[in-house]
């Protein structure tokens, strides 16, 4: 991923900052600036998520693209945050530990890098809570 493309969203990725539509009380992460429920009537403000949630579903990636190949096998999951929105993230744990419904919490980790000399990306991953 190109440097500007990544850095544009860095605050959201580093700190798990999404959005909250105060009109219908719905939370969004990844952030949405337009609330799909309220559209023009929605009032959307920035929101800091607590960073705790549960595993909805998961997989173990055994074969990946260049950028992630040295991490295999690694756990990927859809996580429902306690505020009610869902995201996709890696979970750092033993493969056998994983189960649907597992409580998890966020940690700050290296996400990847763009080629051998490219920038290293940091952001949020999850660990068992």
């Amino acid at each position: 991923m190109s440097v500007p493309r990544f850095w544009r969203e860095q605050q959201n990725r580093y700190n798990l900052i999404g959005t909250h539509c105060t009109t219908c009380n719905t939370y969004y992460y990844p952030p949405r600036i337009l609330c799909p429920k309220c559209r023009r009537e929605g009032k959307v403000v920035e929101h800091q998520f607590k960073g705790t949630g549960t595993v909805v579903t998961y997989s173990i990636i055994r074969s990946a693209s260049d950028q992630f190949n040295d991490l295999t096998p690694y756990v990927i999951a859809i996580i429902e945050l306690d505020e009610g929105t869902r995201l996709t993230s890696q979970v750092i744990c033993e493969i056998d530990e994983m189960y649907i419904g597992m409580p998890v919490k966020r940690v700050f980790r290296r996400l990847g890098e763009d080629g051998e000399s490219g920038p290293i990306f940091y952001g949020t991953k999850f660990v068992p809570a």
Binding site: R5, F6, A64, Q67, L87, T88, L111, G112, G123
Partner: peptide, 8 residues
Amino acid sequence: EWEGIAGV
């Protein structure tokens, strides 16, 4: 930006 970046 929100699925691929996690390595999925």
